[in-house]
Simulated assay, not measured.
Amino acid sequence: MRADRLVATLLLMQARGRVTAAELASELEISVATARRDLEALSTAGIPVYPERGRNGGWSLLGGSRTDLSGLTATEAQALFLLVGPAAAIAPDAKAALRKLVRALPETFRSDAEAAAEAVVIDPAGWGENDKARPVLVNDLQHAVVRRLKVQLVYGGRRGAAPTERLVSPLGLIDKDDVWYLIAGTDKGQRTFRVDRVLEATVTAEPAERPDDFDLSSAWAKVVEEMELNRSLLAATVRVQERHLWVMQDRLGRHCEVLGPPEDGWVRTRITAPTPLMIAQHLAGWGGSIEVLEPPSVQAELARLGAELVSRYDGRADTARSETVTGRGAGEKVS
């Protein structure tokens, strides 16, 4: 994990004061290019790491060859933990390294550093949505989480419903498959908000309320469990051509489960969604590359969708072929 390397890089620089990218690459068993990128990432994030040119150059911690990590400012400490905290949520070794690093910080910085490390969780398992840009509001919400400040949200309603205003205590952010979620405390209990539906977010000066036992990773696990239950109310057994399986898995994420080894170029899978129609809509575009074995309700929805398409477009294929032939020009022969 990159978080392990970043923390290890800082601890190595604390011990030596100055290192070259080549030395770092040798110590961490990575390429020189990767070591240089890690050093540049630390510097860009605001950590006091800077390059020195010349024969005896390298990368140093600001302040001398034996700078202690407690020399970080509060802002620099937050920058470090915001950088490595998300990966540490899914890497036990990185989490242990962060705990050690916290103990090296001055007491006055520890609260903010811990808050920064716990402000974001990255959940790499897909829900079938890709290529979503990071919302601009994420940085503002992340700031509010770290500073323990309430946020006034204007939240877009579903299916054309009017937006609502809510004053929330932000508890943490989750990046799941490039879709961002905010877990926050409200007057009706803990709620989860999609950040791309937040129309406005105003950070207030009012202190946020955060339960002493709150853990972002655990809270998100409960949210995922509930959402997966709602999204998996119905299952269909579907045969998929083996060469297309990876595409199906990429599109549907954990809602596409392989049931056994390939047989004659086909793979049996379990596809889940809340309703037969939703499963059929996922599968309709696959044509002859898939076969629904059960249940009959999904087969019926696919047949209905197919009949609708035939009814709307039947006959147009012949017209298109005729126009293509006509458009070849009078001088062309058609065999």
Rank of each mutant, 00 (worst) to 15 (best):
M1I: 03
D4Q: 15
R5S: 10
R5K: 11
R5G: 11
L11C: 08
L12K: 02
M13K: 03
R18Y: 03
A21P: 00
A21V: 00
A22Q: 11
E23L: 04
L24R: 00
I30L: 08
I30T: 10
V32L: 06
T34Y: 06
R37N: 10
D38C: 03
S43D: 06
N56I: 06
G57H: 02
G58F: 00
L61N: 00
L62T: 05
G63Q: 04
G63P: 01
G64I: 00
T73C: 05
A74N: 10
Q78R: 15
L82A: 10
A88H: 09
P92S: 13
P92H: 12
P92K: 13
K95S: 14
A96Y: 05
L98F: 08
L98S: 07
V102D: 12
A104L: 15
F109L: 13
A116P: 03
A119L: 08
V120S: 09
G126N: 10
A133D: 13
V136L: 15
R147M: 14
R148Q: 15
K150W: 02
Q152T: 07
Y155F: 08
Y155L: 04
G157P: 01
G160M: 00
L171R: 07
L182H: 02
D187S: 11
R191Y: 03
R191P: 03
V195M: 05
D196P: 06
A201I: 06
P207D: 02
F214R: 02
L216Y: 14
A219R: 03
K222F: 07
V224P: 00
W246H: 11
W246T: 08
Q249G: 04
E263C: 09
V267N: 01
I271A: 03
T272I: 04
A273F: 02
P274W: 04
T275E: 07
I279Q: 04
G288R: 14
S289K: 06
S289C: 07
A300S: 14
E301P: 08
A303Y: 09
R304Q: 14
G306N: 09
R312D: 09
G315R: 01
A317P: 00
T319P: 03
R321F: 11
S322Y: 05
E323T: 10
T324Y: 15
T324M: 15
